[in-house]
């Protein structure tokens, strides 16, 4: 069962990333990326890392994607990259891709050489929960204050005149 799911998630994520790169419209690309993130989350789940899986979906597929779409809303999505900048964009993309490849290579080498470690306590959901509500309770509570300040500030900025 796990093997089947692994292949399904892997194929879906690779296919979604390909579709993201190949789709012309930025908004479509962003939506394909959501699918890629979701199937990556599934892969993390299969690796017995439920917390990473959930965070992958909540933060990447949820919060980061909203930010992406928000930026897309503010730019002219149809225009694409102007011609004179295309070569520059291509060169930058190639350099970044090579850097990423080197990084993954280094990480993989050190992981393959090291003996397989047991899943450490620190990534188990229960342990994280305990940390969050015991050691880091105060920062956690401040975060709620932060979110409230953001909400009130946003409402204050968009509110119609005279509180109507």
């Amino acid at each position: 069962m796990a093997a089947v799911l692994f292949w399904v998630f892997s194929c879906v994520s690779i296919g979604a990333v390909l579709a993201m790169i190949l789709s012309r419209h930025p908004a479509h690309a962003a939506l394909w990326l959501v699918l890629a993130f979701a199937s990556l989350g599934g892969l993390f789940g299969l690796l017995a890392a439920p917390f990473v899986a959930v965070v992958q979906i909540i933060i990447y597929a949820g919060a980061i994607m909203v930010l992406f779409l928000f930026v897309l809303m503010t730019i002219d999505a149809k225009a694409g990259i102007p011609g004179e900048k295309r070569t520059f964009a291509l060169a930058a993309a190639i350099v970044l891709a090579l850097l990423l490849l080197a990084e993954i290579g280094l990480a993989a080498r050190s992981l393959l050489l090291a003996p397989a470690a047991a899943v450490s306590d620190s990534i188990k959901t229960a342990a994280i929960g305990r940390l969050l509500f015991e050691k880091y309770l105060y920062p956690f509570e401040i975060t709620s204050l932060l979110i409230m300040a953001a909400l009130v500030g946003a409402v204050a900025l968009v509110k119609k005149k005279d509180g109507a």
Binding site: P139, L146, A149, V152, G153, A154, L157
Partner: peptide, 13 residues
């Protein structure tokens, strides 16, 4: 976190 609570309120103000 305290600095961000201040900053976020400050943007609104």
């Amino acid at each position: 976190l305290g600095l961000e609570v201040f900053s976020v309120s400050a943007y609104g103000l």
